[in-house]
């Protein structure tokens, strides 16, 4: 840990970043706040509506539905991806020429544009011409994600697992590769079981990176938009309409600015709250 000196001039170094992020964050956020408090009948004519939109959003079953689906989705994703990622990271070779090959192959899904991921899975899962859909039906499952909500959910989740588990793998692997060999040798001399090695050596060393993984996966899955939108369009019905999809639908599809803006603010506050909790936990870990 580096001891830092107090120097108020450091503000000048931060200033450029501050300006560009403020341009992108504060001005648009104020616009959204404005919309969320006003109503309009023609361009440029606005009426102050107070908390009307907020009350409307908070009492609408549509918002509750999207919110519920969002939490369910994020919950399932985290429950699958974190353990699976740790498992794969533990199974990876620790040195040798295969390490680079594994890492490059695993990182590949992370670098595919999100709508290409959606389009890819859209076709991959089609029952008549896609490998996954065709295979499942061949095995005797009645599977068609464009019509069955359960199948659509399974496909959206499988796609996210495919897309993002590697991020957890790479993070966990980075944590593991920081463990000196001596630790393993000591454990071997003591006759520790492989579970004990995991519990008392590997897991504590991975704690920090796993918190980062959790934080990143929470943020990104909570704001997921493009992949499920391209894959299912939020359907069948509303079964895979998550918060972002609903929001874009309200803002751009229906041009319902007040509602969309109020939703945005609530959505942003929720993300902020959860991330603040994560961040506080993470920083506490850092100080000790």
């Amino acid at each position: 840990m580096i001891t830092k000196t107090v120097n108020q001039k450091a503000w000048f170094l931060v200033l450029p970043v501050l300006l560009i992020v403020a341009l992108n964050a504060i001005i648009p956020l104020m616009t959204v706040v404005n919309y969320s408090l006003q109503d309009t009948f023609s361009p440029g004519v606005f009426f102050f509506e107070g908390t009307k939109w907020y009350r409307e959003v908070l009492s609408s079953p549509r918002f509750h539905g999207a919110l519920g689906r969002q939490f369910l989705y994020t919950g399932i994703i985290l429950l699958i991806e974190i353990p699976l990622g740790v498992l794969v990271a533990l199974a990876m070779p620790r040195k040798g020429p295969w390490v680079s090959v594994c890492l490059v192959l695993m990182a590949l899904p992370l670098l595919i544009p999100w709508n290409v991921v959606g389009a890819m899975w859209n076709i991959f899962a089609l029952p008549d011409i896609g490998l996954l859909g065709y295979g499942l039906n061949w095995l005797g499952f009645d599977y068609n994600y464009t019509q069955q909500p359960v199948a659509a959910w399974a496909t959206v989740i499988l796609m996210d697992v495919w897309h993002w588990t590697s991020l957890v793998v790479l993070l966990a692997y980075a944590g593991l590769s920081s463990i000196p060999d001596a630790y393993y040798q000591a454990a071997k001399i003591d006759g520790a079981s492989s579970f004990a090695v995991f519990r008392y050596i590997q897991l504590p060393k991975m704690k920090r990176v796993l918190i980062i993984a959790l934080l990143l996966r929470f943020m990104d899955s909570f704001m997921v938009y493009t992949e499920p939108f391209v894959l299912t369009g939020g359907g069948p019905g509303n079964s895979t309409t998550f918060l972002s999809i609903d929001l874009v639908k309200a803002a751009i599809g229906e041009f319902n600015l007040g509602i969309a803006a109020a939703m945005s603010i609530l959505y942003f506050l929720m993300t902020l709250l959860v991330c603040w909790v994560f961040y506080t936990v993470m920083m506490r870990g850092e100080d000790t």
Binding site: Y225, A251, I252
Partner: peptide
């Protein structure tokens, strides 16, 4: 979430 910022 980028969806929040699209319109502004």
């Amino acid at each position: 979430p980028p969806a929040v910022f699209v319109l502004p």
